[in-house]
Design a protein around this nucleic acid. Structure first.
Lengths: 127, 127
DNA sequence: CGACAGCTTTACGTTTACGTAAAGGGAATT
DNA sequence: AATTCCCTTTACGTAAACGTAAAGCTGTCG
């Protein structure tokens, strides 16, 4: 659209999401595009949010979890209690990511073995 | 239970799943425990399957996707066409894992930044 | 024997994350 | 003026993955 604003289909294309999905995220309070008449105009901030949502989706996060992560980006001033809660949330997320890294490594190993078995079977099959 | 068989609650504890979930996976054809009267007796193979399911779940896989991965472990003889299809499935899964690795790295970086901001805000807050 | 503990089935309910019409506004192109 | 394109709202529908009673079997412990 311009340098700083985006249409819904531009974002849909960029992040491989449907228009319906993007509107749904707005419904859930994760995006807040402005309007030009009826049409939605998305800001850079909206785009960042959507990027986080898409990334979270690929890692199996729920929208609620992505919402929490988005909140970590919001530079609103907070009191001590809130800040400590944020640090805890960050730790929880980090642990989960570590677990996922582990899972991915195991799965990669498994896939590599499966590939070998497959190739061997193909060779035996060739004759 | 013994060295080679498991009860449903043993597996539930080990993989942090509910009994209901495990029974559901059986319903979906991913597990096939034998019976002792009414009670389910799970084999080592069942346990392996469940481990794959749990791992897949943590990475956001659907049950259908986990089912496909489990099939890669099954050493049934296959024809050429099937073997080629398996290799394609393996490639697809691998690509997805690479994407996830990427996503995790970005998310870790983001979380680290958020943590720093948080600590800084806490410091400013102390005075 | 009674009462838990742990397992079972059946079956309806729920949450999440959208999909899918149906009907229409508004600008541009033919 | 009519078509086309892109966007909109409203609203009902759906797939996946279980949750949650309700009611019953089965072994063991006091």
């Amino acid at each position: 659209m311009s340098e700083t604003t985006f249409t819904i289909s531009e974002l849909a294309r960029e992040f491989d999401l449907t228009l319906r999905a993007i509107r749904f995220y707005e419904d859930q309070g994760l995006l807040s595009p402005s309007r030009k008449g009826l049409q939605r105009i998305y800001s850079k901030k909206d785009r960042v949010h959507l990027k986080l949502i898409a990334r979270g989706k690929r890692l199996g996060l729920s929208l609620a979890e992505s919402r929490d992560l988005i909140a970590l980006y919001d530079p609103t001033s907070r009191n001590k209690r809130q800040l400590k809660a944020m640090l805890e949330a960050i730790d929880t997320s980090s642990s989960r990511l570590e677990q996922q890294l582990n899972d991915i490594q195991m799965m990669k190993d498994d896939l590599e073995e499966a590939r070998k078995r497959c190739l061997k079977a193909l060779q035996a099959n060739e004759r």
